[in-house]
Design a protein around this nucleic acid. Structure first.
Lengths: 156, 156
DNA sequence: ACTGATTTGCGAAACGTTCTCACCTGGGAG
DNA sequence: CTCCCAGGTGAGAACGTTTCGCAAATCAGT
């Protein structure tokens, strides 16, 4: 894991700075705070949730800046933007094509990389005649933990 | 097509009335106008687009009523609510599980029923251990017509 | 018809996101 | 190292979609 880029401690600053610079976008404290907070969370965060985390480092940060930076980072291919249930966008630093499972009870989000996705995509491309450029797959249900709740401890 | 319910002309009123009543929700002119307009369009409509169609029959209809009725009809299992690109919900009377292809050029939406979807779903359920209750698949690209534009007529 | 719970229309508000604009700053040129 | 300006920032207003609150209207069971 983290084969090319981000050790989970310490000198991440250098890596993200380099990545932004290589992508041709300016390196600002706000953008660094945003990608780092997003990456460190290892989660799927909304702009507002991200703002809360960013503000622990940059108390003056503004929501507009978070949205603008996320757009910029997305356009630069550094982060991925998605949409879960109904309402707000989420963001993550995993930019590889993948899908999402959402637990309807605890609202946890898990990344999926189903092998059969390519077959499905090919079938659709072949039978429909359309040119498929991207796709989004979201699954809803109960996660392992919520489907089999831990039984209450039994007195002997 | 239309094996159980809606002839494309004439006495639809009776069918929709019956379906609403059977679903245990009150039958109002607004709700009938909304399902009928939605069904007749055979398309994926936003609430606002639907309001325009409904107003040809019910000039006083209100947007709030459209939203409330769509929620009610969705909860009753009579229509399906989805979300396409980024911004607004859409609605359709096709309540069978199916997926959507969206052309990024002409913005047309096409329903898909890929055979391999079940295999994909089963693979995900098996490997993840989650209980899958529903899923949403959206594909983006260029439709047949937009990928191969009609060449301009050649003078001999 | 009478009635009570539901639904409607309207305007206002909520929500997530984008815009405007004055000020500030990253980073290349000198 | 300093200067400079295209580009980024913060604050709040504006935006588009969806929801809410309320008084008046209406569905459906008696």
């Amino acid at each position: 894991m983290d084969e090319l880029g981000q050790p989970t401690t310490g000198t991440e600053v250098l890596n993200w700075t380099q990545r932004l610079r290589r992508a041709g976008i300016r390196v600002t404290p706000q953008r660094l705070a945003i990608v780092e907070a997003l990456h460190d969370s290892r989660d799927h965060l909304s702009a507002e949730a991200l703002l809360l985390r960013v503000r622990t480092r940059l108390p003056g940060a503004s929501l507009a800046t978070v949205y603008r930076s996320l757009d910029t980072l997305r356009d630069a291919g550094i982060i991925h933007q998605g949409r879960l249930g109904e309402q707000r966008n989420f963001y993550e630093t995993n930019v590889e094509p993948h899908f999402h499972f959402v637990c309807q009870r605890c609202h946890a989000v898990e990344d999926l990389e189903p092998m059969k996705a390519d077959a499905l995509r090919r079938e659709i491309a072949d039978t429909s005649g359309h040119l498929i450029r991207s796709c989004r797959l979201e699954l809803f249900g109960l996660c392992r933990d919520c489907r089999d709740p831990v039984p209450p401890p039994l007195g002997v």
